[in-house]
Design a protein around this nucleic acid. Structure first.
Length: 608
RNA sequence: GUCCCCGUAGCUUAACGGAUAAAGCAGCAGCCUUCGAAGCUGUUGAUGGGGGUUCGAUUCCCUCCGGGGACACCA
């Protein structure tokens, strides 16, 4: 089909651009990070002196020592013990002895406590090196090259056309965009795909409703609201008038067959919707490389069904003639073709994944779709793998919980559904009230700009701060609580640091690589000790598809900063070297906060 | 009925099978003539019940209870 070739060409161009971007990219090598250097010093010594396998040695992980423990860092050897088949206590003793005999460069001493090996850093050296590194890398700190050269295809947002975006698609949009950013930070090239819900029987209903009651004036004035109105009216009237469903079905079949007058109507609805969505995405700071909807794959349903039958993976139901698939393994059977021969959602998804793999050859494909579709994805991906469309395990469904209001799912009928546009507008308005109250000196334009950043940040953070799979209990008050544990808390921390830096008479002398940074207080050291873990946190967030790790980390880092801030004056530090060190320290913290929030797709204001 | 997710302090949430379960809100007691108090310090308070695996379980397995969701011609 002509259209299909065009789409393929488009995808190939996008993939090529992603690849050239990747080639030009200046990657930060993971093994250059200080924490990695310390880790490999330890691993090398242990491997050489104990003769344990590389795999076991690589599974020794350095962590921050718990507060009640003596030591700066702790070596977690439990996995290594399991791999090398020793008891943790014995291995820890052997490791501790080996490290004491040949002390790694960055360590002062070792302490053994049962199965735990506690590490004492040469604090001055560590402080100097960690700060030098963070200052040098600035807002690149945290990135790595672990997945350099790989391509991830991420499908997210995926709203249905002719309907307003609701809070359900909001989660997909926010989580998807965060994962896009996080994947990119670990080296991936990422193709951002908005797979529009622009096909299926609902368009028969919509067209029917339009033909019956459509009002051109209203549609031109407020397209989405009016289209939704038509759709709702259809369902209301269909309750008392059941043959409307059949008429709508007939329309949708004619649409699928390509009836020109219906197609042009459909195209118009789609164009209106997309224009509207783009405005919303702009407010959220979300962007896509590819807008390719389900309709693109509607024509291939029959071929897919035929292939499934030919390969004897699916069967024709003798009574109805529908095509049925049974994957076994406790997965319920499902249809891939209706008895009237028309396609289903899953059939189009199959055509779509085949297309994606052929056109771009991604290393991973992510589908950011609510957990209620978990079964559908097990069926769809199971069948796609069986058909050989995608390699086992490369395509993943990234599910997430529902947004609940008072413990219940938001529903249009119950009047509890919040449309995304409404949510954004209200959040910005409420943020503005708070901002004006907290900082009355801001002029109106500044207050507008800041409340957009803070209001949108509150929405995004409310979603990403907790683990993906859990339901979110939606609560206006909590979302707009700008105290600890909020985006505003992090933004405030950033703004405060910027403010100190502006007031300081000397600028941080970041460029000097040999600069001998010094510290005085425990809280300063604790900050750099926390900072060096940022790249690891980003990596782990990517590996597990857990954006909330970044949020949790940033809160902890910000709190360490605020503690330090409260016990030491930075500008009034009389020792010049110490003052210069502190200015660089807080500047590095600000860079991480900005970078981390950026990974979550949250902006930072200059003042607030 | 089958399958999936979830159950942690009064509330909302953290915790690769690891040391004394971590925060925020709410409550109580403190800290601004000094870099932005949207902050900081202290304090009260929790793993739904019962088994099991393990040197060690909030985490894994079984079971019960409670909440949410999904189960073929919708997406």
């Amino acid at each position: 089909m002509h259209k299909q070739a065009e789409a393929r060409e488009q995808v190939k161009n996008i993939a090529a651009k992603i690849q050239t971007d990747a080639e030009k990219r200046d990657y930060v090598h993971l093994h250059d990070y200080l924490l990695e250097k310390v880790s490999s010093e330890v691993r090398d010594i242990v491997r050489e002196s104990l003769g344990i396998s590389r795999e076991a040695a690589d599974h020794m992980v350095i962590e921050i020592a718990p507060p009640h423990v003596h030591g700066d860092l702790a070596l977690n050897i439990f996995d290594a013990a399991k791999i090398s088949g020793q008891s943790a206590v014995n291995l820890a003793a052997a490791i501790s002895k080996a490290l004491e005999l040949k002390l790694p460069e960055h360590l002062e001493k070792i302490e053994l406590a049962g199965p735990f090996v506690n590490l004492f850093l040469k604090r001055k050296l560590f402080y100097r090196e960690s700060l030098t590194e963070a200052v040098r890398l600035g807002e690149k700190f945290g990135e790595s090259n672990v997945n350099a050269g790989k391509l991830a295809w991420v499908e997210y947002s995926a709203p249905n056309i002719a309907k307003p975006i609701g809070v359900g698609h909001l989660r997909s949009t926010i989580i998807g965009q965060a994962l896009v950013n996080i994947y990119h930070a670990t080296g991936y090239g990422v193709l951002r795909h908005n797979y529009l819900g622009d096909w299926g029987t609902q368009f028969g209903k919509l067209i029917y409703a339009y033909q019956q009651w459509g009002d051109e004036n209203k549609i031109n004035q407020n397209p989405i609201a009016e289209l939704k109105e038509l759709y709702v009216r259809f369902h209301k009237e269909a309750e008392t008038n059941p043959d409307m469903e059949d008429k709508a079905c007939a329309l949708s079949l004619r649409l699928e067959e390509g009836a020109p007058e219906l197609l042009s109507l459909w195209q118009r609805f789609k164009d209106l919707s997309v224009a509207n969505f783009k405005k919303t995405y702009q407010k959220l700071g979300v962007e896509f490389d590819l807008w390719l909807g389900e309709s693109e794959f509607a024509g291939q349903g029959q071929d897919i069904a035929k292939e499934c039958l030919d390969k004897k993976i699916c069967q024709k139901d003798p009574d109805s003639g529908a095509v049925v698939c049974d994957l076994g393994g406790g997965i319920p059977t499902f249809l891939i073709q209706k008895q009237d021969g028309s396609t289903l959602y899953i059939t189009r998804d199959l055509a779509s994944i085949k297309f994606r793999v052929e056109a771009a050859r991604p290393d991973v494909l992510l589908y950011i779709v609510g957990s209620e579709q978990e079964l559908n994805f097990r069926q769809f991906l199971g069948l796609a793998e069986k058909l050989g469309y995608v390699q086992l395990g490369r395509a993943k469904h990234i599910g997430f919980g529902t947004i609940l209001s008072e413990g219940k799912k938001m529903s249009t009928r119950g009047g509890t559904l919040i449309e995304l546009e409404e949510l954004i507008a209200q959040s910005i308005a409420k943020s503005k009230e708070i901002i004006k109250e907290k900082n009355p000196d801001l002029n109106s334009a500044q207050a507008d700009e800041i409340s957009r950043i803070v209001g949108v940040g509150a929405i995004i953070y409310n979603d990403l701060r907790q683990s993906r799979t859990k339901n979110i209990s939606f609560n206006w008050k909590r979302m707009l609580d700008f105290e600890s544990g909020s985006a505003a808390y992090l933004q405030y921390t950033y703004v405060r640091i910027r403010s100190i830096l502006k007031r300081a008479t000397s600028r941080p002398s970041g460029q000097a690589t040999g600069f001998s940074y010094i510290f005085e207080k425990e809280s300063e050291f604790n900050l750099t000790r926390k900072m060096v873990f940022f790249p690891q946190v980003v990596l782990k967030a990517q590996e597990n598809n857990w954006p909330h790790l970044v949020a949790t980390y940033l809160e902890e880092l910000a709190q360490l900063f605020n503690t330090f801030y409260n016990e030491a004056s930075i500008i009034n530090t009389s020792d010049i070297l110490l003052r210069e060190s502190r200015l660089n320290l807080i500047s590095a913290v600000a860079a991480i906060v900005k970078k981390g929030l950026g990974l979550l797709d949250i902006k930072v204001p200059d003042k607030m």
